[in-house]
């Protein structure tokens, strides 16, 4: 489903060149739940932004659903983001002036759905995250955990095949974090592929597959019962 081969991403500022990703290789299969961990500044967000077509890359090959992403026009990549990808951010990033229903409706507007279709999907998505009764509330009137659930509803409303979450529980207490995690697990069970960046090892352990990004490169681990990581990737030798 997602395939990155030798992706490099270099940020050039006036003086420094930052190699955020170097020879980055990753395959994610349909239906997987991948947790991404790694030290701060290692390139996790950069990877997610590239995976989500929010950012280009310097060189390498990226195929999403068999489509070569390298030279897509802005219109095309916007359409792919809209139809296939759902984003969840650490900061929730709801639009403060819009009420919950309107926030969830935003991606559906850009998809060009009819009003009745939009209403149906908004209601369904908000009910799925347990906020069906608060459609007319503004984001500021909700707790952080509730806001993140709205953001998930927004990502779900378009029925994406592919959910990208950048530290979705980073701003939540462990109780709320667990709720959000359970929600994501349900979504994954329903068939959506999920890639989630997290700093919480406990949450990471609950995912099917863990990868670690260190210094812009992947160390792939598959968790097994005992909880001891087993090195799968061949491009990183030693991780302490």
């Amino acid at each position: 489903m997602l395939s990155m081969k030798n992706i490099n991403k270099v940020f050039k500022t006036d003086l420094v060149e930052t190699h955020a990703l170097r020879d980055f290789n990753l395959e994610v299969k349909e239906g997987e739940f991948v947790a991404v961990t790694g030290p701060s500044g290692s390139g996790k967000t950069t990877f997610l932004n590239i995976a989500g077509l929010l950012e280009g890359f310097t060189n390498g090959d990226y195929f999403l659903d068999g489509v070569n992403i390298s030279n897509l026009s802005d219109n095309k990549s916007a359409a792919i983001r809209n139809e296939k990808i759902g984003f969840i951010f650490q900061g929730f990033n709801l639009i403060p002036d819009l009420n919950l229903a309107e926030n969830v409706e935003v991606p559906l507007r850009y998809r060009g759905f009819s009003r009745s279709e939009r209403d149906k999907r908004v209601k369904q998505a908000l009910e799925q995250v347990g906020l069906g009764a608060r459609m007319k509330h503004l984001p500021a009137q909700l707790s952080g955990g509730q806001q993140q659930r709205v953001a998930i509803a927004r990502a779900l409303a378009g029925e994406p095949r592919f959910l990208l979450a950048d530290e979705p529980t980073g701003n939540l207490d462990s109780m709320m974090a667990r709720q959000v995690m359970e929600l994501l697990e349900d979504i994954n069970k329903a068939g959506t592929t999920i890639i989630m960046v997290t700093h919480d090892p406990e949450l990471a352990r609950r995912a099917q597959r863990n990868i670690q990004i260190v210094d812009g490169q992947v160390c792939d681990f598959t968790m097994y019962q005992g909880g001891q990581p087993q090195l799968v990737s061949d491009n990183v030798q030693a991780v302490s």
Binding site: A78, R81, F87, N93, Y110
Partner: peptide
């Protein structure tokens, strides 16, 4: 806000 809209599917033209 525009960043959010772009991320969830708005094109530049939109």
């Amino acid at each position: 806000e525009v960043g959010v809209r772009r991320a969830i599917g708005a094109s530049r033209a939109q």
